[in-house]
Write a protein that binds this DNA or RNA. Structure first.
Lengths: 334, 334
DNA sequence: TTGCGCAATGGCAACGTTAACATTTGGGCG
DNA sequence: CGCCCAAATGTTAACGTTGCCATTGCGCAA
């Protein structure tokens, strides 16, 4: 084993190649004003010494990091993997890297995410919001640090992007009404979930828009067990022919709950969920659900930052609609 | 809007506070050799100017980034969220950040992950391996860049860490044999999956260790549908009283497949899976499965790098055993 | 022959931070 | 009253890179 070498700098390469540091730098950036043979000599020296450009020196000089920070309050949230896929895809496209940080949610504020990021080598940041931060109204992004929030709430100073949960409910409810149902029952979620609450609004308002007074909802907790209980409860309600659950796990649980009480799906009751999360996990016939493109959401967020390269940013709000996936759990009642 | 300010440096703070740059630096690091009242004055200046220490300058000076890079060939893989939770948790503990990169899997080599990372501001790197890289045997980590592989294969030059998939199978098979079964059938997975193949070995060798010749396995593809088909096929085999599937989705599908052929679980056949991934998704009685602590795996990997702080690293290999979770899908046959 | 222009390369400075060393100040003690 | 020591603060230089400008060498036109 050789002793641990100090890191190799342009200076070392320059010395070995017998050129100036500047020529090494130009070679690294493949400048046309270096003679091909000189370039080759420099490259040989780089190979021999194992030269790797130093990120810190470069960033210091350039004043840019080519990196986007991602702050999450909760790493293991639904859709985070797909969003992450989107973050990295967009970052790659622009030659950026992604720096990931978990933010302690006590208190649950944008300020804590922001100050966490401020010490890191990032040019901009993305915050994934699941709940309502205490300082949402008053938060100001750090000067010079473009900030994108992944949320449906519009912020006056930060761009935002998310799936359109309101429209998701509209699609599902109108689809079910279109199939001949007189009303749609709803299995909700814990009240602190922003997206869940927005789905709830969408369900309620779409029904009203069709002149239907929304029936009493059943509050679930995202788990199949709570869906199962809801299904059992709704099985005894003769007015209930269509059920919309705020996620697929509850929808699936609901189906099994209905079946446990002798109801058949979709013959007696139609059931729809949201997320398209059960794809390969459940062997049953395909659930009617809404598919979101979280990867696209992630890409949009990072594009907004990495694609701006010095352009005056400008606040923008983007909602991507989901796609309704017809499954075998809804039949035609007309 | 004010014009975009140039970033604020220690120099600006020093001028405003009427002290030297060094005193500002010392204040930032809360050195005891600065008078409290001076500190307060400096801090006031920092607040007024909105000073944030510059990461590049700091790293350049220190020669360290306090950052660990994570390279993934496939972001949306099972367990990645939990691993990521572990990465960030360990990084936090040491005051490190995580930089995430997707590596193109063509070709699928450690070299491509390594060279991707070499240009980023990281002190060490973690590679998540799902398949066998073409250059596994010949790969050498970059000098000065400690590299940890998340895999069960031991590497001569890199530390490795993963769940113990062999032991996982041992636990399941011995549990089932202990419940009185004469043999255990196995639903496998695609052959390129390293962890899946190791589970297969574990199943086979554990049976042999008990003097049992392993029955013919059924190759699945991770999906519940393939498990369903396997269940149907095995339903007609009278010797089959215990089935071990290489993941929970296939196990669940298998149960439904058996049921579709009139077999009852666990009365007629016992079924076990791996992953503990169906927790809240399926309302049925609890599947017998093995739970892995991917967060711990992630923490170990980052600890190995961030916890070493200049210590001569040393190659180490770590396997964490899973925990068998008894469910209602196995009955006692004794 | 001289001068001009272009291609190729070199020298210098600065980005922001902090380790190492230097200096000043004030207090205690002989 | 002078000396010494410790606490508090200041000065300098260097980390690696690259933009800007200067310099060199060469071919070609006047």
């Amino acid at each position: 084993m050789a002793a641990v070498k100090k890191s190799v700098s342009v200076k070392d390469v320059a010395r070995l190649a017998g050129v100036s540091e500047q020529t090494v730098s130009r070679t690294v950036h493949d400048s046309p004003s270096v003679r091909p043979e000189t370039k080759e000599r420099v490259r040989a020296a780089m190979r021999e010494l194992g030269y790797r450009p130093n990120f810190a020196g470069r960033s210091l000089r350039r004043g840019k990091f080519k990196t986007v920070g991602v702050a999450m309050f909760n790493i293991t949230g639904t859709g985070n993997l797909d969003r992450m896929e989107g973050f990295t895809a967009a970052a790659d496209k622009h030659g950026y890297a992604i720096t990931l940080t978990k933010v302690d949610g006590h208190p649950y504020t944008l300020e804590s995410a922001s100050s966490r990021m401020s010490a890191l080598p990032v040019d901009g940041m993305v915050v994934i919001m699941n709940r309502m931060p205490a300082d949402f109204g008053t938060f100001e992004p750090l000067p010079g640090m473009q900030t994108v929030l992944v949320t449906m709430l519009e912020h006056p100073l930060c761009s935002t992007v998310d799936n359109d949960q309101f429209d998701c409910s509209r699609q599902v409810v109108e689809y079910l009404l279109g199939r001949g149902h007189k009303t749609v029952h709803f299995i909700s979620c814990p009240e602190r979930s922003l997206s869940g609450m927005r789905r709830e609004e969408g369900w309620r308002e779409t029904l009203r828009a069709h002149g239907i007074e929304p029936p009493r909802l059943i509050r679930g907790d995202w788990t199949a067990q709570s869906g199962y209980a809801a299904g059992q409860a709704l099985a005894d309600d003769p007015t209930c022919t269509a059920i919309y659950a705020s996620n697929d796990a509850m929808a699936y649980g609901c189906i099994r709950g209905l079946e446990s009480r002798g109801k058949r799906v979709p013959e007696d009751v139609s059931v729809a969920g949201v997320d398209d999360s059960l794809g390969d996990i459940v062997p049953d016939r395909r659930l009617t659900t809404v598919r979101f493109d979280n990867k696209r959401v992630g890409m949009w967020a990072v594009d907004k930052i990495a694609g701006a390269e010095g352009v005056e940013p400008g606040v923008e709000h983007m909602l991507f609609p989901g796609v309704l996936v017809e499954g075998d759990t809804v039949r035609d009642w007309r």
